[in-house]
Design a protein around this nucleic acid. Structure first.
Length: 466
RNA sequence: UCCUCGGUAGCUCAAUGGUAGAGCAUGCGGCUGUUAACCGCAGGGUUGUAGGUUCGAGUCCUACCCGAGGAGCCA
């Protein structure tokens, strides 16, 4: 049976007086002994539920309607009318309400029409999308994802589906999850007693990817403007509000480009996808501003209008030294910036996102391009107030001899990088890219504090129930 | 992994070492074109787990489990 999306009805896309059907779940029910009930029904298509007025003359009124509780699924058919009450422009005068699914034992139904803590909702991750908060997060997350593909598509980028499984242990971005079909209780051994991975599924050790970057560089050096957008895995035992074991990452890579062009892209990208949220999800953003973070909306509005502060790493260090702040970790050139330093830069000094560029080479990855000063690399971090590092990027080292020297200096296995080095042997070009932690962007936009609340089913150490 | 704080009814939280309570939710009744309605009544508990101290432990001690905030690692 055809039915209407509640978002269409509330947006005025269906004329008053029309016969309509909605299908959804009950939020609340209020009874009037005058002989009618008000049922708030949501279907997830927009923030607001629609009010369905159930007259006592419905054949199942006494038997079913007045027994509806939060969570029941219903099909409501009736006439779209202007509301006689305050609080909504239109409502449905029901001619029939069919109950598809009851809530057995309503007393223990985990989702109640009240405020729940985010920690509690995490324990009922299969039901939390029915809440105002997680519903709004889900729509904003989708909006950001769609805007991401639209942004790149409109600029001639190609979406590259880089592999999830990698047999290369050279990605170098942290602990990896092993992928294996070997019998853990009976591992095959080589003569010298080590695990014999030649008998494993891929004939060698394999893992879940920690980054699509190395693979996407190959396509960048052929299709010029490319990006990845997919899941990424880190087996680090990190227990924070900013880390997940499985998260989604967006990694554009542009050929014939330097670090400055990379920073330009990062800035334009964030502004564009954030503006899409303002344009398309005003209802959800209003909720976040009201119940989650007061300045969520105004901060986003100013974000899309203002430019990022850009700062050389050396200047950032000087600014921190001059700040007069008593940091737990003193600042010194050559050190990586601590969370407290990053927070000072974007939250206090600049009060907006900051791009810190040209870090000391010794604290950055081997593939980042060595600057002419010989002691820094063309790397950048984009720091967002309240989140910290939201983007990390760099211009890549395109000179084979310099790349080899860096691989050797860092004691990495050069042979494993054979195909990555080939990209520098055959028609090498300057290129650059960055990685955006998608969930961190959702955190920033919504004002939701914990990263585990902006992904449907979060995976973290000791946590993979759903 | 380290530091700090926490775990009591379906949910949010009280309870000086001395009879475990409230609000919301649920059920029943009342009232009302209602807006997380309101009023009354009722049911609802192995106080995270396992030990220990004590005449007596939600409360004190030990270990473990889980959660939160911060740190490190990073996106």
């Amino acid at each position: 049976m055809a039915h209407h999306m509640i978002s269409h009805l509330l947006a005025g896309k269906v004329p008053v007086g029309a016969e309509v059907t909605v299908k959804g779940w009950v939020r609340t029910r209020r009874d009037s002994k005058a002989g009618l009930s008000f049922v708030q029904v949501h279907d997830g298509t927009c923030f607001d539920p629609i009010q369905v007025v159930a007259p006592g003359s419905l054949p199942n009124y006494d038997g079913e309607i007045i027994r509806l509780t939060a969570g029941c699924s219903v099909v409501c058919t009736g006439t779209l009318v202007e509301s006689m009450g305050k609080g909504q422009a239109v409502e449905i005068q029901a001619a029939a309400i069919e109950v598809l699914g009851w809530v057995d034992d309503p007393e223990t139904y985990p989702m109640q029409p009240k405020r729940h803590s985010m920690e509690y909702l995490r324990e009922v991750a299969h039901l939390r999308p029915r809440t105002n908060t997680i519903g709004a997060v889900t729509r904003v997350r989708n909006c950001l994802a769609q805007a991401t593909h639209r942004f790149f598509h409109e600029r001639g980028f190609f979406w590259i589906h880089t592999p999830i499984i990698t047999a290369s242990d050279c990605e170098g971005a942290g602990e990896m999850f092993r992928v294996s079909t070997l019998d853990l209780a009976n591992l095959p051994r080589t003569a010298d007693g080590k695990v014999d991975y030649s008998q494993d599924f891929f004939g060698k050790e394999s893992f879940l990817t920690v980054s699509g970057q190395l693979n996407v560089e190959a396509y960048c050096c052929a299709l010029s403007r490319v990006y990845t957008f997919g899941p990424t895995f880190r087996a680090e035992n990190s227990n924070t509000s900013r880390h997940l074991s499985e998260f989604w990452m967006i990694e554009p890579e542009i050929a014939f480009a330097d670090l400055s062009a990379d920073a330009d892209l990062a800035e334009e990208f964030l502004r564009t996808i954030f503006k899409a949220v303002l344009d398309e999800r005003g209802d959800d953003m209003a909720f976040f501003a009201q119940h989650v973070q007061k300045d969520a909306l105004t901060r986003l509005e100013s974000f899309v209008q203002s430019s990022f502060e850009r700062m050389d790493y050396g200047d950032a260090v000087k600014a921190l030294e001059k700040s007069g702040k008593a940091f737990e970790y003193p600042v010194k050139w050559g050190m990586d910036l601590q969370s407290e330093h990053e927070r000072y830069l974007c939250e206090e000094l600049c009060k907006r996102p900051v791009v810190v560029m040209n870090y000391p080479k010794d604290i950055k990855a081997f593939y980042m391009r060595l600057n002419d000063d010989g002691r820094t690399v063309a790397a950048m971090d984009v720091l967002a107030p309240g989140i910290g590092e939201i983007i990390g990027g760099s211009q890549r080292e395109e000179r084979l001899d310099v790349l080899d020297a860096r691989i050797d200096a860092m004691g990495l296995p050069k042979a494993g990088y054979w195909w990555y080095r080939d990209l520098r042997r055959y028609g090498t070009v300057p290129h650059a890219g960055f990685g955006l932690g998608f969930e961190r962007a959702v955190n920033y936009v919504t004002g939701i504090a914990n990263i585990r609340d902006v992904i449907p089913f979060p995976r973290a150490p000791k946590s993979a129930e759903f």
